[in-house]
C-alpha cells in the first residue's frame, strides 16, 4: 500500500522534465534532494546565528530599553508614560533638578508593559523617585506589547506578557529567532546604536488646520478598566517596597481637545481611589497653540513650561 502510494515520487526522481540529459537529470535529482534536506537545518542554524548577532547589536544600542537590560541605566528619577511621556525631556529635567533622569516612556505604551519595565528596572537599579503619566491608562495597543519581543529573552516578565497577549507572536518568536527582531522597537534600537535617545521629543508646532479642526472633534471618553488599575497599583506597591517615591501626574492636553474629554475628572478620581495616591492634574496647564505639536503632545517649548511647573511642585 505504502509502496504504491510512494510510486509517483520515486518515478519523479528520473522524470525531471526540465532537465534533459540523463546524467544531468541524476545530478539535478541528487542536488535537489540535498537542497531540500539541508533547507530546514540551514534555515534554523542561520536563524539562530543571525538572531544572536542581532541580540548583540540590540545590547550595544543606546536605546533606553537596551540600556535598561544592558546595566547602564542607573538614575535618580525614573519616568514612565506613553508618547506623552516624551514631554519629560531628560536634558531639561536634569538641568532643572541636577539629578539624573531615565525615561521608560514609549509611544502608546500599555501600562501592562510599563509594569514589567518598571519591575525590571527596580530589580536592577535604585532610583529615588518614580513619575508616572497616568494618561497611559487610557488605552492599550496589543501591537506595542508584541513589539517588545526583541527584549523577551532578557526579561521573563515581558516574555510572559507577550505570551499572554498573543500566543501566535510568542510561538513564532520561539520558532524563528529573527522574528523577535521584526519590530519597531528593534528598529529604534538600531537607530540609536551610535547616538543617545534622550533627545526624543517632538519639535514642531500644531498646524493651523489641525488647531481649527479641534472644534469639530467628537467627544472623547477615557475607558477605565480594572486590569489597568491593577497594573498601576502593582507598580506603586513594588516601588513603595523598594523605598521609591511615586508621583502620579496627568500631563497637558491641547485646550480644544481637553474640552472634548467627557470623563477626565471621573478618570482621575477612579485612579486616586484605586491607588490611594493623588494625581497631580496638569491637563489644562498650557493654553497657547505654539506649545503643542498636536492635540496630545507638547513640543519642546511646551515641555519646558510643563517641566518647570513640575519641578516647582517637587514632582522630581
Amino acid at each position: 500500500m505504502l509502496s504504491r502510494a510512494l510510486r509517483p515520487y520515486r518515478q519523479s526522481l528520473v522524470q525531471t522534465k526540465g532537465v534533459n540529459q540523463r546524467g544531468a537529470k541524476a545530478r539535478f535529482v541528487r542536488s535537489s534532494m540535498l537542497v531540500l534536506l539541508l533547507l530546514v537545518p540551514v534555515t534554523f542554524i542561520g536563524d539562530r546565528l543571525l538572531g544572536a548577532g542581532l541580540e548583540w547589536l540590540l545590547l550595544e544600542s543606546n536605546f533606553r530599553y537596551s540600556r535598561l537590560y544592558g546595566g547602564t541605566a542607573q538614575a535618580d528619577v525614573v519616568v514612565l508614560g506613553n508618547s506623552r511621556g516624551h514631554a519629560f525631556y531628560e536634558p531639561e529635567m536634569e538641568k532643572l533638578s541636577g539629578r539624573t533622569i531615565f525615561n521608560l516612556s514609549y509611544n502608546a505604551l500599555p501600562i501592562s508593559v510599563g509594569r514589567a519595565l518598571v519591575e525590571d528596572y527596580l530589580d536592577r537599579y535604585t532610583p529615588s523617585v518614580l513619575v508616572v503619566d497616568v494618561s497611559m491608562l487610557t488605552k492599550t495597543e496589543e501591537q506595542i506589547t508584541n513589539s517588545f519581543k526583541a527584549y523577551e529573552s532578557l526579561s521573563p516578565r515581558l516574555d510572559k506578557l507577550i505570551e499572554r497577549s498573543s500566543e501566535e507572536t510568542s510561538t513564532a518568536s520561539q520558532i524563528f529567532s529573527l522574528y523577535r527582531f521584526n519590530s519597531e522597537v528593534f528598529h529604534r534600537a538600531l537607530y540609536y546604536l551610535a547616538k543617545t535617545d534622550d533627545d526624543w521629543i517632538l519639535d514642531k508646532q500644531i498646524s493651523a488646520t489641525m488647531a481649527r479642526n479641534s472644534r469639530d472633534l467628537d467627544r472623547v471618553s477615557f475607558r477605565i478598566t480594572k486590569d489597568r488599575m491593577r497594573d498601576l497599583r502593582h507598580i506603586i506597591e513594588v516601588a513603595e517596597r523598594k523605598g521609591v517615591t511615586v508621583n502620579l501626574v496627568m500631563g497637558p492636553y491641547y485646550p480644544g481637545y481637553l474640552k472634548k474629554i467627557s470623563n477626565l475628572d471621573q478618570f482621575l478620581a477612579t485612579i486616586e481611589t484605586a491607588t490611594g495616591y493623588e494625581v497631580e492634574d496638569y491637563s489644562g496647564l498650557i493654553r497657547q497653540d505654539a506649545m503643542f505639536s498636536d492635540y496630545l503632545h507638547l513640543n519642546k517649548d511646551g515641555s519646558s513650561i510643563f517641566l518647570a511647573e513640575l519641578y516647582e511642585d517637587e514632582v522630581f
Binding site: G18, S31, S32, L34, V35, L38, T43, G46, D47, Y179
Partner: peptide, 23 residues
C-alpha cells in the same frame, strides 16, 4: 538558481530569513 544548488539553498533560506525579519 536551478542550476546551482548552493545558490538555490542560499536563496530559499535568505527569503525565509527576510520574511521572518521584515515581514
Amino acid at each position: 538558481m536551478l542550476r546551482y544548488p548552493a545558490f538555490r539553498l542560499a536563496a530559499y533560506a535568505s527569503i525565509i530569513w527576510f520574511i521572518a525579519l521584515f515581514g
